[in-house]
């Protein structure tokens, strides 16, 4: 019995020649068949067509690159053949680890890893770890085992939550195990090169980012404490905001809007500021900037509510969910660039 691959109408099929008379062939992934020759198991789904003294197998699900398949017919030994591995060299890299800060709060809620290419799921907890710089020990149970994993729509940004139960005061896991991070420690987030891209290839190389753990970040995000720099009329100079604390970069990208003026807003990589460049030059007058109250800092405190509310502390009270938060940048007439600061 001979077996081989052929392509028919763009699909890969398995061709068997010299099939023993009267024998029906079955296909298994070799990994699953193992040494078991009796193979009581239901074989791979697909359709057989007789072809001369042989047969052609069109699988219900396409053969996978790099996978070995075994064909069983009659009492003979299985014929084994392998699909060629996925082509192409490794190309994906880690572009950034966020927050891009030297010092993170002890109650940090999440890390994000940005990749250069779309990635495969299922590697977050296998190929990413948090370790102490001092002795290289892995911080145990630091990340929430999120299933499904938290990816953005194009599978380039992975969000890793530090176990929220260990961050929230009053919960049993917090009382038992404490914060995942220890103030004063240096920790390193490591991404192994085994992390697979969407094509199944590893990374070009491993990546790591080091952080010092600072004090807790508490309280609601306070847009009234931000510094707003207004641009002069007649120019396309950027309108700039400096935040009161480091914010989540992805949320800041989504949660800040300039009314009635098309343009592009960009959050600084370190999450400490935001700038907006209009498509057309500024005209004099106040420019309202709407802040979605969902906007969070790196510890998960938002404009609307704190992450971990102490019911005995009045300043932890949430905003009315319908409260609008709007900042104003006064664009001044005239051609001199005199940035105005407004609180």
């Amino acid at each position: 019995m001979e077996v081989g691959w052929e392509e028919r109408r763009g699909d890969v099929v398995l061709v068997v020649r010299g099939l023993p008379a009267g024998a029906a062939a079955r296909v298994y992934p070799a990994d699953v068949l193992g040494d078991d020759r009796t193979a009581p198991r239901q074989p791979m789904a697909g359709r057989w067509e007789a072809a001369g003294t042989g047969a052609v197998f069109a699988p219900r699900f396409p053969f996978l690159p790099g996978t070995e398949y075994a064909v069983l017919a009659g009492d003979g030994e299985p014929a084994v053949l392998r699909r060629p591995p996925a082509p192409g060299p490794r190309q994906a890299t880690v572009v950034a680890v966020e927050p891009a800060l030297d010092v993170v709060p002890r109650n940090l809620l999440r890390f994000s890893v940005r990749f250069s290419h779309p990635m495969s799921e299922g590697w977050a907890l296998r190929a990413v770890r948090l370790e102490r710089v001092a002795d290289g020990a892995v911080v145990p149970g630091a990340f929430l085992d999120a299933d499904p994993e938290l990816w953005d729509a194009d599978r380039r940004r992975l969000t890793l939550l530090l176990d929220p139960a260990r961050l929230k005061r009053g919960l049993a896991p917090h009382r038992e195990a404490g914060y995942p991070l220890v103030e004063g420690d240096e920790v390193r987030l490591v991404v192994d090169e085994d992390f697979r891209d969407a094509g199944g290839r590893g990374l070009l190389g491993p990546a790591a980012a080091t952080f010092r753990v600072g004090p807790d970040l508490r309280g609601r995000v306070r847009p009234d404490a931000w510094t707003v720099s207004a641009p002069p009329a007649g120019t396309r100079a950027p309108l700039r905001i400096r935040f009161d604390r480091p914010l989540d970069r992805s949320l800041a990208d989504r949660c800040l809007r300039v009314a009635d003026r098309p343009g592009a807003g960009t959050t600084a990589p370190d999450g400490r500021g935001w700038s907006f460049v209009p498509d057309r030059p500024w005209t004099p007058g106040p420019v309202p900037i709407a802040v979605d109250p969902a906007l969070e800092d790196v510890a998960g405190n938002s404009v609307a509510r704190v992450f971990d509310r102490d019911l005995t502390v009045a300043s932890d009270d949430p905003l009315d969910p319908a409260d609008a938060v709007v900042l104003t940048a006064p664009v001044a007439a005239g051609d001199s660039y005199a940035a105005r600061h407004e609180r």
Partner: peptide, 27 residues
């Protein structure tokens, strides 16, 4: 985004705000 939803007064201006709902990435 600034033009729909409930009207609120803020800093002397009446604005209509619609919150952007949370983007869902995992059910």
């Amino acid at each position: 985004w600034l033009g729909e939803g409930e009207a609120r007064e803020y800093n002397g201006r009446v604005l209509r705000i619609t919150r952007v709902p949370a983007r869902l990435s995992a059910i």
